[in-house]
Computed example of a mutant assay.
Amino acid sequence: MTVYLDTNATTPVANSVADLVQKYLVEEFGNSGSRTHEFGARAKQAVELARKQVAAVVDLDSSAVTFTSGATESNNIAILGLQSYAEGLQKKHIITTSIEHKAVLEPCQELEARGFDVTYLPCDESGVVSVDSLKNALREDTVLVSIMHINNETGSIQDIQGYCDVLQHHDAFFHVDAAQSFGKYSDALKNERIDMMSVSGHKVYGPKGVGALLCRRRGFKKIPLKPLVFGGGQEKGLRPGTLPVALIAGLGEACRLAAENYDQWAQHCLDIKQDLVAGLEDVGAQINGTHSAPHVLNFSIPGLNSEAAMVALKGIVAVSNGSACTSSSYTPSHVLKGMGLSDERIEGAIRMSWSHMTKEIPLAEVIGRIKQYL
């Protein structure tokens, strides 16, 4: 059986999550907006419990949670939703990085087309954006800083604490794309200087098609976001539309499990990573990015193209050569290019990512198959 090693694209769903989703699809199918009968009341209770479970991962009140279809939508609301506020104050400068997911880069590019000035912070071969680069880029008219926590391609962990320290005395809103870290490595996300964070259910052993935008108040003030779509008034008008109760309940359960188990999950992932790194030394693998999360490894093997490698490993392990959202484009990774890697190294890059559900990687078979192609 092929071992699944592409959890950065999507994680497996936990059994209790699947059971709960099934329950709210088939048995408790009420609309949480229905106020005249017990079916609607029970659906609303499920949504509000999930809201508490999501918020609890980062020690927030449930009122901080707005349910969305996933981190892509959350990112768009966090970035594009500030346009009116920024224009009203004539503060139209945004800071992000060159290694963000397209779900951040493209909304920023859209605001550029609307007259905003966007600074894209660089990184070096480590894959980490320096704190000093943020400090040097800040301006009086900076309205938003958007920096991911863990890179989806390399797993490089960005210095959230350092960025928060830089922003401590600046009033720019700080948004973190936490799709790859929420529920796995959440401690850094509890920093009160983070104003907004984006979450996807299918990155934390929950269902696809659901996520959240978490917003911290500043004192008693809400973040001045405007909705991108209109109609219905759900989620306090910020994200209208009938709530997918089954998916939301599943996300809540996934977050409950994560909050209880993330330490031991991370240790299991780290044990796998250490064995993998040691084994790959035998084929001269070059690790792409440093200070990466325990559940992911991006590497290149000199003389081996990533497409050939994936063919070689077919039937043994399921891996990728980049982001699932851009895998059909066959364009060189903007993340690895941003790190200054050579074209040959980028063309050979392979991403392996796993989870606490991964029992072990058939390392001897992997290494043996790779050697056949060298």
Rank of each mutant, 00 (worst) to 15 (best):
331 T>E: 15
267 Q>R: 14
323 S>C: 15
198 S>Q: 01
57 V>A: 06
195 D>Y: 08
65 V>D: 03
8 N>V: 11
123 C>L: 05
164 C>F: 03
21 V>L: 02
176 V>I: 14
24 Y>H: 14
151 N>H: 07
100 E>V: 12
117 D>E: 14
192 E>D: 05
4 Y>P: 08
210 V>N: 02
65 V>R: 09
260 E>Q: 15
246 A>E: 14
214 L>C: 07
96 T>N: 05
270 L>T: 00
363 L>N: 03
238 L>R: 10
28 E>F: 08
343 D>F: 08
37 H>K: 06
170 H>G: 07
189 L>W: 02
68 T>R: 05
245 V>F: 06
179 A>K: 13
351 R>Y: 00
206 G>V: 01
227 P>S: 13
367 I>F: 05
47 V>T: 04
160 I>T: 15
31 N>E: 06
53 Q>W: 04
151 N>E: 09
119 T>R: 09
84 S>T: 10
128 V>H: 04
251 L>H: 04
245 V>A: 13
324 A>Q: 10
343 D>R: 12
147 I>C: 10
210 V>R: 02
124 D>N: 15
281 E>W: 00
83 Q>I: 03
323 S>I: 03
161 Q>L: 10
65 V>Q: 09
288 N>Q: 13
162 G>T: 11
371 K>M: 01
66 T>K: 00
344 E>M: 12
277 V>N: 00
61 D>P: 09
303 G>Q: 05
134 L>S: 07
68 T>K: 07
67 F>H: 07
343 D>I: 12
348 G>W: 04
217 R>C: 04
264 Q>G: 00
101 H>L: 11
343 D>W: 12
114 R>Q: 13
171 D>T: 12
127 G>Y: 04
201 G>M: 10
63 S>A: 14
171 D>V: 02
345 R>S: 13
278 A>L: 08
3 V>A: 02
285 A>T: 11
35 R>I: 05
264 Q>D: 03
243 L>M: 15
147 I>Y: 05
34 S>Y: 12
275 D>Q: 10
56 A>F: 07
328 S>R: 09
22 Q>W: 01
289 G>F: 09
110 E>I: 05
204 V>N: 05
142 T>G: 01
282 D>I: 15
278 A>V: 04
37 H>Q: 13
38 E>L: 09
34 S>L: 14
127 G>Q: 08
2 T>V: 11
84 S>D: 13
321 N>F: 14
297 L>D: 07
136 N>S: 15
185 Y>D: 13
345 R>P: 00
349 A>S: 15
24 Y>S: 00
333 S>A: 09
257 L>K: 01
341 L>G: 06
230 F>R: 10
301 I>V: 15
58 V>T: 11
291 H>A: 11
217 R>P: 03
297 L>T: 01
342 S>H: 09
315 G>T: 10
24 Y>D: 00
167 L>H: 06
276 L>F: 03
140 E>R: 08
204 V>P: 01
339 M>C: 10
74 S>P: 03
7 T>L: 03
168 Q>F: 02
216 R>I: 10
49 L>G: 01
142 T>E: 03
209 G>Y: 11
218 R>K: 15
95 I>G: 06
192 E>T: 11
65 V>K: 10
281 E>N: 10
47 V>W: 02
321 N>L: 11
70 G>W: 04
246 A>Q: 12
72 T>S: 14
18 A>V: 07
201 G>H: 11
113 A>P: 05
11 T>D: 01
238 L>Y: 04
